[in-house]
Design a protein around this nucleic acid. Structure first.
Lengths: 353, 353
DNA sequence: CTGAAAGCGCTTACAG
DNA sequence: CTGAAAGCGCTTACAG
């Protein structure tokens, strides 16, 4: 396939409108932009001329002149398939869109799952067609952050980037603290044979969650299995843990999707959750209350995260320096670490363990 | 919240590069665009100067001059939440992105779930910042298609728009034929007490599927319940059908998501599918094989649909007139209308009905 | 192979 | 309140 050069399309310009209205283009421009100091008579003439000529301002010319576009990009470093498989993305996109909408800026999503798409996104940002950009899920291996960090445009990353953090802003849940508290919750149940299912080793956030887990279990060597944040990888990891020969009575899983997968595996083997093995996830995504047993998890406050992301991007556009914000997480207790009613389960739990 | 006017950021221009390289800006432009007829010496000087000055071409200036942007928009008339709830969107977006990638054009997604977002998307297209646009799920009530149809930019709609079809291209599954064949499949099972769960009445495609259903059942008055294409609305509609007092032994559901919801309701009530009631959906989305019993459905060939959408947009950009394409559907038989093995179920089916 | 020049369509001080 | 003019940063015939 080849690029088709667009046919020239006739469009009326500001000069056409000016001629039709019998005014100068300066006056047309002033009414198009709602500037004051235009006589009612001129305004009416221009408005009529705009209609008559079917005029629309040319965005390239306007932005070139204004030196900004009033648009920001949201770069998603995933294929559409993976994007749609993880409910967190919906929450993040919706949050950013909702906050940004009130600011008068417009948003364009750039899917950057393939190398070509990443190159296009980088080009778009480097060429100054957007005033700023959000970056979601920047896997280290792509080096996209590195290339973008030299762009002359403010950047806000969702999550903690592994490298080049000085020139960009980021906002993230407090991963270490969240993972530590999740693990302590498991410990508080009286469980002592803990394991963890980690996210991809190349994602900084995944490493931090593992670190928080280690903080909580102290000096004991961690029993771990790595997944890639997908549901099926959680099943596989759980199976490896189960078949490893280690005794396990509780697992901290680095995200809800993998926790759901772990639950699938446990359910398949007839292992009772939480009686035999307690499970805690991370995210409180839409899947957490939907699985059976429902999933205890550390809630990421994406509403606060996205609000802060927008705030930092706007600040960056206004000339402020990059800033880093950590947002706290909340423990949400559900069936996978508790019974219902709580008391009943607790006593049952004490008897069986 | 208010708009922050961006601080002026220093960026080197083509003149800076020309000065640093000791050539004219014409020459710089030629090497930036890979044009022939540049001496190796000049090329090297320019390349060094580009690096030294950290130069990037300004997209607005380039596009203003070139009169096209090499970018197309994909307008999604849904909130991010709904977008992510329906697996069809992922398939469509991924399909368009994949085909478009090979053409050298870049893609930007515009979420147009709210009135403000729709206004932004329309503005973006009217201002000629994209060379063309895809439109997905254009609910009639928004009038977005109407506003866009006067834009001086080719448009390709996914699905059959209810109005203004002359100025835009569209590609759609053959809804009428698909629905008719789905219903005939139900009839071929020996079922005679049919009902249908329809999509939203304001969506043209939903009306066409109902029409196809009516074609198949002939003169009998259709028993219908309307949903809104979500899973939960399918449950509700199924419940209404069940509580209506009509005898029902087979249901054509206008999409898979609602069919899954119908299955939920049937499972809850302990009604056996397909023994007591057979169910057929529409789409063959990822949920169809995932539910239990797995769902018989009419497959929409989204790979062909998206390929054709890109083809038509490119053709439109090249100056060709709008065109309309209908793509055929395929019957995919699974458990919800058949047993496994087939023979076993068939005999069982004959005995119980 | 290269430079000088025109022009893409706007906005915005600057005079008046 | 309004017009004439400059200029945003490019690309592309046009000469040479």
């Amino acid at each position: 396939m080849t690029i088709n050069h667009p046919v020239p399309r006739v469009r009326s310009t500001i000069d056409d409108v000016a001629a039709a209205a019998g005014v100068s283009r300066g006056t047309v421009s002033r009414v198009m932009n709602g500037k004051p100091w235009v006589s009612d008579e001129a305004r009416r003439a221009v408005e009529a001329a705009v209609k008559a000529t079917d005029y629309r301002v040319n965005g390239h010319a306007r932005n070139l002149r204004r030196q900004h576009s009033n648009m920001v990009a949201l770069v998603l470093c995933e294929s559409a398939g993976r994007l749609f498989a993880d409910p967190n993305f919906a929450v993040i996109i919706e949050g950013i869109a909702a906050v940004l909408e009130k600011t008068g800026m417009s948003l364009c999503l750039l899917i950057a799952g393939t190398a070509t798409e990443r190159a296009n996104a980088i080009e778009m940002i480097h060429s100054n067609k957007v005033d700023g950009a959000f970056l979601v899920s920047a896997h280290d291996e792509y080096g996209i952050l590195e290339q973008l960090s030299t762009a002359n445009v403010p950047l806000v990353v969702c999550g903690i980037p592994a490298g080049v953090p000085d020139t960009v802003s980021y906002v993230s849940s407090d991963e270490v603290d969240g993972a530590r508290r999740a693990t302590e919750h498991l410990l508080s149940l009286g469980r002592s044979a803990l394991a963890t299912i980690t996210g991809p080793a190349d994602i900084a956030g995944a490493k931090l969650r593992l670190f928080g887990y280690q903080l909580a279990i102290g000096k004991s060597t961690p029993i771990t299995a790595e997944g890639d944040y997908t549901r099926s990888s959680g099943s596989l990891a759980m199976a490896r843990l189960l078949d490893s020969g280690n005794t396990i009575d509780a697992v901290f899983v680095a995200n809800d999707l993998m926790a759901a997968g772990a639950l699938d595996e446990l359910n398949n083997r007839g292992i009772k959750v939480p009686q035999e093995i307690a499970i805690i996830g991370f995210d409180d995504s839409s899947i957490a209350p939907a699985v059976s047993p429902s999933l205890t998890t550390m809630r990421q406050r994406f509403d606060d995260i996205t609000r802060e992301m927008v705030r930092l991007l706007l600040a960056g556009i206004a000339g402020e320096s990059p800033r880093h914000t950590l947002i706290g997480t909340e423990l949400v207790v559900r069936e996978s670490t508790a019974g219902f009613p709580f008391e009943t389960f607790s006593s049952h739990h004490l008897r069986t363990i």
